[in-house]
Design a protein around this nucleic acid. Structure first.
Length: 188
DNA sequence: TAGGCCATCTGGTCCT
DNA sequence: AGGACCAGATGGCCTA
């Protein structure tokens, strides 16, 4: 028996693929048999904190390993604050996942039937940006250093062109932008 | 079944 | 002071 204790977990639904039938907030703790409400005050965290105190991971300010902030409130008030904190954290992660989903849709990849993982998404996005940068610099007549990585100077020039284009056109259309860059390179 | 990926909880730290 | 951010821990789901 797992300590998380889900009776019957609904089919997993990622928040980057939002269920149109559900508002995000309907998953708030306590709205169903979902774990959020009770799990957050359950045993799990009670010992985990002490485990981490030995990690010395991020020892801030004065006195590493100090106890957490005491709010001087009752257990009930603390657990309420915890639940609110959990909810905010959930919303934050949902936003992050939405951003990941937007990024997935922005980058081309081969296997469209398989959802890209987060790490794959970031890696592909990085490569995609590099490729586009190279193409644009190439079109603008700039010289790429050996290895194809744009120098800081050419990247700065590229950014300047892009910002200028945005100011003048107010539209981040790639085709227009490429035309714009090309015309600039013709002038110089 | 092991390993990868993910959602969630949690507490510490940073920031406003 | 309170919210945001971060990273560790945990357990569920899925696939090879």
């Amino acid at each position: 028996m797992k300590s998380k204790g889900k009776v019957s977990k609904p089919p997993r639904r990622t928040w980057s693929d939002p269920d149109p039938e559900l508002e995000p907030d309907t998953s708030e703790p306590g709205s169903s048999e979902q774990e959020g409400s009770e799990a957050s005050v359950r045993i799990r965290g009670s010992w985990r904190g002490s485990l981490r105190s030995g990690d010395g991971k991020r020892q801030g300010g004065a006195g590493g390993g100090r106890r957490r902030r005491q709010h001087g409130s009752s257990n009930k008030e603390r657990s309420i604050r915890r639940l609110e904190s959990n909810e905010r954290e959930r919303q934050r992660m949902h936003k992050l996942n939405n951003a990941f989903q937007a990024l997935r849709e922005a980058i081309p990849h081969v296997k469209t039937e398989k959802k890209l993982s987060k790490i794959e998404t970031l890696t592909l996005a990085k490569n995609y940006i590099k490729s586009l940068t190279s193409i644009i610099l190439d079109m603008s007549g700039a010289c790429l250093p050996a290895g194809g990585v744009p120098s800081e100077a050419s990247a700065a020039k590229l950014l300047q062109c892009y910002q200028q284009h945005l100011e003048e056109e107010g539209e981040a259309d790639l085709t227009q932008y490429l035309t714009h860059v090309h015309s600039l390179s013709q002038q110089s």
